[in-house]
Amino acid sequence: MRLKFGSRLTLGGAVIAAVLGFGAQAYAQSTVKSPTLDAVKKRGQLSCGIDTGIPGYAYQDSSGKWQGLDVAFCRAIAAAVLGDPEKVKFTGLTSKVRFTVLASGEIDVLIRDSELTFARNTQLGLAEPAVNFYTGQTFMVRKSLGVSHVKELNGATICVETGTTLETNIADYNRANNIKIGTLLFERPEEAFAAVEAGRCDGYTDDGGSVAAARSTMKNPNDWVFLPETIGREPLGPYVRQGDEAWFNIIKWTHFAMLEGEVLGLTRDNIDAAKVNPTNPDLRKFLGAEGDLGKFLGLDNDWSYRVIKMVGNYGEVYEATFGSKGLGFPRGMNNLWTNGGLMMPYPWY
């Protein structure tokens, strides 16, 4: 078929218009459409699944207020989305039920020192927006046993929390090294800690942060040592349901905002001063003086300011929970990449 020049022009114009129109529509949808975000805003409260209670990640302080690295992440999301870090409903979940509760829609996000794995991503239909704690599976044993390497635990019994990747890691380690480390599986950490203390097990294993937490609950923490070697690798982070990419993005970039705060040297105390008249272009964009960071997430432009102002940057939170003001657990892999760690927020543009 041959078309006259005029009609070709018309056709071309129509195609361009259609492409533009479609693009504009797609653009509009991608910025705002998130059922979870809408539900959270409507409810006026973020529903966050956390640990039932473990020092470092999620624990209640003497006044009964939830504290911890995971808890702070929940509060940061609430600050970004709702403008108030206290508008969070915390639901303590055992390791066994956590993914079922998330999949059923009872909570908006699960931040419960959960290891991010291929199987959970693909088989459970869950998405893994970020890593908020890098660690490895660590063993804690009684000093008096004189053990210095995981391999020397052949024949020993180790207490473990059930429903975790830890059991599998030990089974794999046993097979790879042709030894036999026995496990005793507990539903909740409280009974597991009691069994370790009583000598029912020779030691306790979990990710590094949790083992530090376990040691802090022992009658005499100095009787217990960490074995220097870890098995497996445990990147811990939040989980959301698949199928809501906009919500996924909010979780992911809230984490990066906390890291960016540390990169830019913004803290709860100095951010107000820094916001007055920022000159550094990175700072201007991050604090919403320039550009549209918030709009692309379906939030307002002050979201990142609120995260730092109301909750603090990642380094501040780590210091208060795992660092010198908390469990005294070395920052190690969780340092910024500039300090030899693995924490590197993606660039914003």
């Binding site: 390791s95 066994k96 993914f99 079922t100 199987a119 959970r120 088989q123 459970l124 207490c159 059930t162 429903g163 975790t164 059991e167 599998t168 005793l184 599986l185 507990f186 539903e187 909740r188 009974e191 597991a192 069994a195």
Partner: peptide, 24 residues
């Protein structure tokens, strides 16, 4: 028995296996 680490149906099958397989 799940509370005291006794490996019965609820602890092992509705616990570990459920968690590893995700087949609620």
């Amino acid at each position: 028995g799940a509370a005291v680490a006794y490996p019965e149906i609820f602890q092992i099958f509705a616990g570990t296996v459920l968690n590893k397989s995700g087949r609620e």
